[in-house]
C-alpha cells in the first residue's frame, strides 16, 4: 500500500498573539513558533500506523518554503519513507484550490493507494484541500475521519459529525481521507529521532517540475483573492463582580443572557 500524507508547517497558535503585517495580507512571524499542523500530525501517525500494520510505503509531502523541511523531517522520523517539498515562488499566496492543484500534480507522478491530509490547517482553516485534491485526482474522499480500517481496497471510515455523532461508511481506494484530531495518539518525536533522519534526502520540486504554469498555481491560480487580514477587537478580561450574592448572580445571569446561553 502506497500512502501519501500531506503536511503543512503552521504557527503554533495556543498563546500566540497574531499581529498583521504591513501588507495586511500576512502576519508578523518573528515571535511565533512553528510546528507541524496538529491535524497533519495525526495524519502522519495514521499513515505510519497503517504501514506498520499492513506494510507499504509512506510519502510525506508539503507545500511551503525551505523551512517546511522540518515538518517533513519530522514525518521521516515518525516513519515516512520519502519526503517531497513543493517549493517555488510561484506557489506563494495560493488558496486551497491552488495548493491542491500543486499537490495533485506531485502526487500523480507515482502510483498511490491512499492519501491522507489533516482535516484542516490551523492557519487559514479552509478544511478544503483534501476533498479538492480528491476531486482533482478523480477519486473518492471522506473528511473529518476519526476511525479508519483498511480491508482490501475498501477503507471503512468513521466520520465525525456534530454532538458526539459519527457516521460509518465504506470508501473504495484509492481515496483521500482527511484526518480529524484524536484518531490516534501521535508518538513522540525526539531530537534523537530527528537526528537519525537528518541526512535523508528530501526531494524538492517547483512548478515547472510538475508541468504547471505560473498562472495555474499560487495567487494567480487561486479562486479566492485575499483582500485583507485583520485582528478583531479583543474583549476586556477579568472583572470581579461586586455586591451582594443577589447582585452578583444577577449580573452574571444578564451576561449569560446577552451571550444567548439562556435561550
Amino acid at each position: 500500500m502506497n500512502i501519501v500524507v500531506c503536511v503543512k508547517r503552521v504557527p503554533d497558535l495556543a498563546e500566540a498573539e497574531i499581529v498583521v503585517d504591513r501588507s495586511e495580507k500576512g502576519i508578523e512571524t518573528e515571535d511565533l513558533v512553528f510546528d507541524i499542523n496538529e491535524w497533519d500530525n495525526y495524519a502522519v501517525e495514521e499513515a505510519v500506523l497503517l504501514k506498520e500494520s499492513i506494510g507499504g510505503t509512506v510519502t510525506a509531502i508539503s507545500l511551503g518554503e525551505e523551512d517546511s523541511e522540518e515538518v517533513l523531517r519530522r514525518g521521516l522520523a515518525v516513519g515516512a519513507d520519502n519526503a517531497i517539498l513543493l517549493n517555488d515562488r510561484a506557489f506563494d499566496g495560493g488558496d486551497a484550490f491552488a495548493t491542491a492543484k500543486a499537490l495533485a500534480a506531485a502526487i500523480e507522478r507515482n502510483p498511490f493507494d491512499l492519501i491522507l491530509t489533516g482535516a484542516q490547517a490551523a492557519d487559514d482553516g479552509y478544511a478544503q484541500v483534501g476533498a479538492t485534491l480528491a476531486e482533482m485526482l478523480g477519486i473518492p474522499h471522506a473528511t473529518l475521519v476519526t476511525g479508519l480500517e483498511i480491508d482490501g481496497n475498501v477503507a471503512r471510515v468513521h466520520r465525525e459529525l456534530e454532538a458526539g455523532l459519527e457516521e460509518i461508511l465504506d470508501v473504495r481506494l484509492p481515496a483521500v481521507l482527511t484526518i480529524q484530531t484524536g484518531i490516534n495518539e501521535p508518538r513522540y518525536v525526539s531530537i534523537a529521532g530527528i537526528r537519525r533522519v537528518a541526512r535523508r534526502e528530501i526531494e524538492v520540486l517547483g512548478a515547472k517540475d510538475l508541468g504547471l504554469s505560473g498562472d495555474e498555481v499560487g495567487a494567480a491560480g487561486s479562486r479566492l483573492e485575499m483582500q485583507r487580514l485583520f485582528v478583531p477587537p479583543a474583549t476586556q478580561k477579568g472583572e470581579i463582580l461586586e455586591g451582594s450574592v443577589d447582585v452578583t448572580t444577577e449580573k452574571l445571569v444578564s451576561i449569560f443572557a446577552s451571550k444567548g446561553w439562556l435561550a
Binding site: P11, L13, A16, E17, I18, V20, I27, D95, A122, D123, D124, G125, L224, E225, M226, Q227, R228, L229, F230, V231, P232
Partner: peptide, 10 residues
C-alpha cells in the same frame, strides 16, 4: 483565520 485570532476578507 489563525484559530479565530484573525479574520480575512476574501
Amino acid at each position: 483565520a489563525y484559530g479565530g485570532k484573525a479574520r480575512m476578507s476574501v
